[in-house]
């Protein structure tokens, strides 16, 4: 494709996603420190800076950093309370963990030359499976066999119920797939598009102003997408949790 000598374009949009060992070497064992480790570690450090160091003075009148931390806290706390109901509030730390990781990984991945950990399906699928398994286990633990009632739509006509049950079950098991692909696909697509435009800029000479301006515009869009996808991932987690705790059925 792009490797041919005849092509002027030298575009490698997927190169940025390669997992590399940090300290040389070829083999990637499960414990090898890689760029994944590096950027996840940076996410942890930023989280600590924001939520621990920023609030270390515990002032009544908050500093800027502290008010950012408080805003995040209030935002997720309200979301959990509104969507999952009052019973769901004890899962707030769990939801907050997911949100902080996803939003920081998305935003840090947008730094030029950075590695976007959330663009990898290994990461997003693990997160989604975590949500899926915890919701399923929690649902059975909380409601017992009654959790299966979620698939039996009692408001539908009796004839339709088995069909609807089948559809509901399929949609239930597609949840982790869509949950993970949505996040990973969005981040990957955005980064790939930026890289493609960067390749155009390299080939066009003076006219590369156009793709560079486009990159700036897409970068703004990607910032929005990064935050919105983190928000969507979190709110869907809350929506699934609501099914599990059985509160606030519509």
């Amino acid at each position: 494709m792009a490797g041919e000598e005849t092509s002027k374009l030298n575009i490698h949009p997927m190169e940025q996603f390669i997992v590399k060992p940090l300290f040389g070497g070829d083999t990637i064992h499960w414990y090898t420190p890689t760029n994944v480790t590096l950027w996840m570690g940076i996410a942890v450090l930023v989280m600590i800076a924001l939520l621990v160091l920023g609030t270390s003075r515990r002032s009544i009148i908050p500093s800027r950093l502290q008010s950012v931390g408080e805003m995040l806290y209030g935002f997720i706390h309200n979301m959990v309370e509104e969507v999952t109901g009052h019973d769901g509030i004890k899962y707030f730390p769990y939801v907050m963990t997911l949100f902080m990781f996803v939003v920081l990984a998305n935003l840090l991945g947008l730094i030029p030359m950075a590695f976007a950990t959330t663009s990898h399906f290994a990461v997003t699928a693990t997160l989604a499976m975590l949500v899926f398994l915890s919701v399923t286990i929690l649902g059975f633990a909380k409601q017992g066999i009654g959790f299966l009632g979620m698939f039996w739509v009692s408001s539908a006509p009796l004839v339709l119920r088995p069909v609807l049950a089948l559809i509901e079950i399929i949609s239930y098991f597609v949840r982790p797939l869509s949950h993970s692909i949505r996040l990973g696909g969005n981040v990957m697509a955005g980064h790939a598009v930026i890289k493609v435009f960067a390749g155009f800029a390299g080939a066009l000479g003076v006219a590369s102003v156009v793709p560079i301006l486009s990159i700036a515009a897409i970068y703004g869009l990607e910032l929005l997408v990064a935050v919105v996808q983190a928000y969507v991932f979190t709110i869907l987690t809350c929506v699934y949790l609501r099914d599990a705790v059985g509160g606030a059925h519509h």
């Binding site: 869509s178 692909i181 949505r182 696909g185 969005n186 919105v228 928000y231 969507v232 709110i235 869907l236």
Partner: peptide, 13 residues
């Protein structure tokens, strides 16, 4: 946002 996310997920597929 939830609606947009559901609609978008299918496109991402």
């Amino acid at each position: 946002f939830v609606g947009i996310a559901f609609a978008e997920a299918l496109g991402i597929f």
